[in-house]
C-alpha cells in the first residue's frame, strides 16, 4: 500500500492527432456539445521538419479536456501501418479487435438519464452508438469518433464499496507475484489471491 500523498487532480488533457478537423469538430462540439475551450496555432515547433499545426481542445467536464493536433500538409498515407485501428495506431489484419479496442477513453456521466441523452445525440449523428453494455458495476455506450478512436461514455450503477478497494489491492499483489514467476495464468492468479484472502481479508475493516 502506498504511503505517498496523493496530490494529482484528474486529467488535464489527453491528446490525439487528427487528419479530419472538420469531422472532429462536428463530433465533439456539434454532436456531443463539448465546448471548444482552447487552441494553439503554431508555426512549427522548433525543429525545421516539424509541420505547422493547430492544437485544439474540447471541455469534457470537470475542467478536463480532450485535445487534437491537426498538422498542415501531413499526408495520412505517410504514416503507414495496417488496415485496422485508428489514425494514430494502425494494425495488421491479424490483430484481434479486442486488443485494439482495449485502449480507449471513457468519459464519465452522473446518471442513466445523462448517458441516454448522449446516446440520443450520437444516434442522431453520423456516429451512432455502436454498443450499450452493462458491465460489472458500470453501464457504457460506445462509438468510434471520426478518427477511429474508440469513444466510451459511462455511468456508475452504484458507488464502489470499500471491500472492492481491498479486492483490487489483493488482485494486484497476486498479479505481481504471478507475473514474477514462470508462465502466468488466470488459474495461478486465483490460487495466489485465495492465499492473500486468507492472510489479509479476515482482519480487514473498512476505513472510516
Amino acid at each position: 500500500m502506498s504511503e505517498l500523498d496523493h496530490r494529482v487532480r484528474g486529467v488535464d488533457h489527453v491528446a490525439f492527432p487528427t487528419f479530419d478537423p472538420a469531422a472532429t469538430v462536428r463530433f465533439y462540439r456539434d454532436v456531443l456539445g463539448f465546448p471548444v475551450v482552447h487552441s494553439i496555432c503554431a508555426a512549427g515547433w522548433g525543429p525545421q521538419d516539424h509541420p505547422d499545426f493547430i492544437h485544439f481542445f474540447f471541455d469534457i467536464g470537470n475542467g478536463d479536456r480532450i485535445a487534437f493536433f491537426y498538422y498542415f500538409g501531413l499526408d495520412r498515407g505517410s504514416i503507414g501501418g495496417g488496415p485496422k485501428g485508428d489514425v494514430h495506431s494502425r494494425f495488421g489484419e491479424h490483430v484481434p479487435d479486442w486488443f485494439i479496442r482495449s485502449r480507449h477513453l471513457a468519459i464519465h456521466v452522473d446518471s442513466e438519464e445523462d448517458l441516454l441523452e448522449y446516446r440520443r445525440r450520437l444516434d442522431a449523428s453520423e456516429w451512432p452508438c455502436e454498443m450499450q453494455v452493462k458491465h460489472e458495476t458500470i453501464e457504457s455506450i460506445y462509438t468510434h469518433d471520426p478518427n477511429g478512436y474508440m469513444f466510451e461514455m459511462t455511468r456508475a450503477m452504484r458507488p464502489i464499496t470499500p471491500q472492492e478497494d481491498l479486492d483490487a489491492n489483493l488482485t494486484i499483489d497476486a498479479l505481481l507475484d504471478v507475473v514474477a514467476g514462470p508462465e502466468p495464468t488466470f488459474g495461478k492468479l486465483l490460487a495466489r489471491k485465495a492465499e492473500l484472502i486468507v492472510e489479509r481479508a479476515a482482519s480487514w475493516e473498512p476505513a472510516r
Binding site: K134, H135, G187, L190, A191, A194, L196, I197
Partner: peptide
C-alpha cells in the same frame, strides 16, 4: 448474474481446488 458479473465473480480458488 448478467455475463460481465458472472465472469468476474470468482475472487480466489484455493490451491487444492480447480475450476
Amino acid at each position: 448474474c448478467r455475463h460481465a458479473v458472472w465472469y468476474s465473480a470468482v475472487a480466489g480458488v484455493a490451491r487444492d481446488s480447480r475450476i
